[in-house]
């Protein structure tokens, strides 16, 4: 709400407070008011505090510009600094100066609106009506449908904390996504490299194939022999790979999960610093969410990584088939030449 020289801002949900989330503003003393707060407290800018020699705990009296007989005595509970000027807080007709932006709570804001008696249309109101229901995770979609069927007005929006619930799995989701992408890339690159290596390997052995065919070995026998050799090498590589994978899966997963959680924690710490309170530390995730849903998030920090027999069988089968196919293609390519031609070209 913008009145007189000051802009009073209150949020029903801290996730709306983008200036602090993005770090454009930062609490330097005291702390940001919680959306649940009902006391007559405010958070003011550092410049405003310095210019007027205001400290934490000081009480300031404001007059309602529409009716100067109405006054509000508000206690300073926090002081913020402006880190980055944005188009939103640089000053405009509606919001004259970011240093004069005062953060309070909905109780104070509603009191001013009520006293002013002006239509709410004149104010920038961001307020949510919260009614929390506890629903099984599996029934979230059904619940939303049921509420709409009951005839809830379009003015209200049904929101769930589904993302918050699932956000505890975010580090695992990230690892899973990374692993899948890595697996696909490895597979595609692997097949390409395998085929090229096989092709080069068989081309290197073109002379040998020419000699063997010249002295009477059949194309089928040559193909089988070379494919068998390649498959044998693949099996040895598989054994080495699976052994290494089994030994490294857990430590690598632990390391990746730890890194992911650390990243989330660093972000949470930044939030704590910006809002000046631990209460806001775990505030991550989607906007438009009722404030009582902003609970502390406890990330899943243990993930059991193991390579079971199904994975080994699938992996082995896929690898051997791919190796056999790629080497067969290479051998068939060479076998199309007559032995005489291969040997003459060499001579």
């Amino acid at each position: 709400m913008n009145t007189g020289d000051f802009t009073v801002i209150a949020y029903s949900d801290s996730s709306y407070n983008e200036d602090f989330i993005k770090g454009n503003k930062k609490i330097v003393e005291g702390e940001m008011l919680s959306p649940d707060d009902t006391s007559y407290k405010i958070v003011i800018s550092e410049e405003l505090a310095d210019e007027n020699d205001i400290n934490i705990g000081d009480k300031i009296e404001f007059k309602n510009t529409n009716d100067e007989s109405i006054t509000y005595t508000l206690e300073v509970s926090g002081i913020y600094s402006i880190e980055n000027e944005t188009s939103d807080n640089m000053g405009s007709r509606m919001m004259p100066n970011s240093t004069n932006q005062i953060y309070s709570n909905l109780t104070v804001l509603n009191k001013i609106i009520d006293d002013d008696g002006t239509s709410e249309d004149n104010f920038k109101v961001m307020q949510n009506v919260t009614a929390a229901y506890y629903v099984d995770y599996e029934n979230i979609d059904k619940f939303e449908e049921e509420v709409k069927d009951l005839g809830i007005s379009d003015y209200y929006k049904v929101m769930t904390n589904e993302e918050e619930v699932t956000s505890t799995l975010n580090p695992i989701k990230n690892i899973s996504s990374f692993s899948k992408t890595f697996l696909i890339i490895t597979f595609v690159v692997g097949i390409t490299i395998l085929t090229i290596i096989n092709l080069f390997n068989i081309r290197e052995r073109k002379y040998e194939i020419g000699v063997l065919r010249a002295i009477g070995m059949t194309k089928l026998k040559i193909t089988l022999q070379l494919v068998t050799e390649t498959v044998m090498i693949t099996i040895i590589s598989l054994i080495v790979g699976i052994t290494a994978g089994t030994l490294l899966a857990q430590p690598v997963t632990n390391y990746m999960l730890k890194n992911e959680i650390e990243n989330y924690e660093i972000e949470a710490t930044n939030m704590e610093e910006n809002f000046g309170s631990k209460e806001f530390g775990m505030m991550r995730g989607p906007k438009n969410k009722p404030n009582d849903m902003n609970n502390n998030i406890s990330y899943v920090d243990e993930l059991k990584a193991e390579i079971d027999s199904n994975i080994i069988i699938t992996l082995s089968f896929a690898t051997i088939v791919l190796t056999a196919l790629s080497s067969s293609v290479a051998v068939l390519y060479i076998n199309k030449y007559e032995p005489n031609k291969i040997l003459q070209n060499r001579e």
Binding site: G210, A214, G216, L343
Partner: peptide, 16 residues
């Protein structure tokens, strides 16, 4: 293949 492996024995200039 049978002819080359059992009927004839081939000696090449470059030994092969």
């Amino acid at each position: 293949e049978k002819y080359r492996s059992t009927v004839v024995g081939i000696i090449f200039q470059s030994y092969n």
